[in-house]
Design a binder for these strands. Sequence first.
DNA 1: CCTAAAATTTAACGCGCGTAAAGTTTTCAT
DNA 2: ATGAAAACTTTACGCGCGTTAAATTTTAGG
Lengths: 341, 341
Amino acid sequence: MTKIKNMEEFAALSGISRPTVSKYFHDPDSVRPTTRARIEEALERFDYRPNIYAVNQNRKLTKNIGIVVPYLADPFFAEIARYLEQSCIAAGYRPSLFSSHGEQKLENDILDGLQSMKPAGVLLAPLGRTSDQSVIERFCANVPTVLFDSNLDGLGAAFIGSDNFSFVSQTVEYMTRTGEPPSFFEMRTPANPNANKRRKAYVEVMERLGFEPHIIRVDGKGWAFEEIGHKGALKVLAENELRTNSVLCSNDRLAIGFLAACYEQGIRVGRRDDCALRLASNDDHPFAKFTCPSLTTAAHDYDNVAGRSVETLFELIESGGKFETRSETLFPARLVLRDSA
Amino acid sequence: MTKIKNMEEFAALSGISRPTVSKYFHDPDSVRPTTRARIEEALERFDYRPNIYAVNQNRKLTKNIGIVVPYLADPFFAEIARYLEQSCIAAGYRPSLFSSHGEQKLENDILDGLQSMKPAGVLLAPLGRTSDQSVIERFCANVPTVLFDSNLDGLGAAFIGSDNFSFVSQTVEYMTRTGEPPSFFEMRTPANPNANKRRKAYVEVMERLGFEPHIIRVDGKGWAFEEIGHKGALKVLAENELRTNSVLCSNDRLAIGFLAACYEQGIRVGRRDDCALRLASNDDHPFAKFTCPSLTTAAHDYDNVAGRSVETLFELIESGGKFETRSETLFPARLVLRDSA
DNA sequence: CCTAAAATTTAACGCGCGTAAAGTTTTCAT
DNA sequence: ATGAAAACTTTACGCGCGTTAAATTTTAGG
């Protein structure tokens, strides 16, 4: 079997002219069924594929889609990324996955490199507070971008994420209804804007229910949430900072650290009578099912967030990269009752 | 500030001829310091960058490097990938990250797409048993490839991984020295070839120490190891299949499931007197520190595995894509004593 | 200051494909 | 069968850059 060098050669072998073959690769349905059949027949025999670099050089819009997440070592983002990837592929695009690994410089570099890929669109979950707003703003001005998970005011053509109020209201209401009102456990300076919304929601819901909010803020920077939660919880437990037997963690990874601390201190967590503490959280992290005890948490609507994100991006691409108005779509949480609260 | 369209234009603005500018972008040190300075000065003022598609079309060897892992939602691979990515960037390459998500078809598709990227080299952690050997073989014949983590006999120019015997011998020796000899807990048909090596190592070490090996194999397919470990452990505990109070899990993710099962059943795990079971494992998963109890495990030498992998790939690239002989490099484990055993 | 070596410029071709224009063939409804 | 529309072929140019060869300039060493 001879190696095909280029489209010219392949066109000759398939008995079709090169412009028509080119048209076929752009959209197989744009050619007559008989010619399509002939091309595909030749394709079977010769295993040719257009040079992607030559293709992308000449097309104004590539079929590339960038997917950027803040921290890929977090299985939550890995799962979302998986879904986004698959959806892009199914729609005929070529996704490229990037992780900022929690670092602003890296996020900037990624966006920088992404620009020179001339992507049809980008799905961006920014770092949040530690993002360089000006860099992201400039990027969004040049590339059709849909933000997800973390909202940055006014940036990107649209935002799709979770309704933090829904998360916290469900967990707080559940905990107060079935026991004592929870303290809120979080990082002092969370990078993720969702954390701030969750704190506000906590205060609002607690007040509405007639309880006094009690927020515990622990030190720690970066994305090692489990470690931060663990250290913070040890301190909280040692200094007896809790006012009730009930804690709501800002997110599951903090909760995982908290549970580890409780275990070490011999404090039983759960809703049973022999337990000293109840602990709930937010996110439904992939590991939340396997913590000890398993974690009661408000689950992201993964499928809808991811699904709507890609849908929105495709609409954006088809609209020529601009929307009339920036939309924000929030999906509510689903309370997952497990053993920890 | 005018938008620069191409290198021609940029060259004119910087007062340097295009071929020299082209040379500069290929290797900044290949031009005279004074001209380099002039180019970089213009670069500051005009923000031009070569069109990567045009560049890659004409260069025989691109600066792309493919990184393929079997399952990115496993933080172990996410961490390795992070290290590999950074090393590639530091060396002036453009890494692209892919996850097979545990599926053969996807692995094949990824390798397929990777070929048309004409990468300088690829770092591949294959699925293992479920990989399509012929596809990988064909791929390796066309693209300089270094395998890591999972070895496939004879495939790729080199393999870098962990010495499974070192893992298991350390854990088994530690457990037998400080307590009863462990049973070995694993999946019945593990996808990863390391699992088989670990089982064999377990048998060998046990026999050498004069104990009878006892292997427990649990059902389950795919990459949901925690779930599989959890279900399997519940069955093992219910049917009292353990011969001693000691268990060695094939990997940490199974162990996480096992620990969850123990917790649910009220079985205290650890080396203290009030514990009914000791459990150790292999890998030092990023979350092993936060299990309840924290997990005693044999740690991968992450840094060396990742570091040597990229080093080897760079050597391979510089050698023109072929090595005289295929090398296999194994790094020993480091026993991490925590609370579970 | 002179000369050989090194670096740069100029000019030009090629890469593989997108795409446009003009001419030719096929298709399909009448 | 007929005519127009649709699809295809031929021809040709352009994309942005790699790369080469010959001509020119700069550099460095004595």
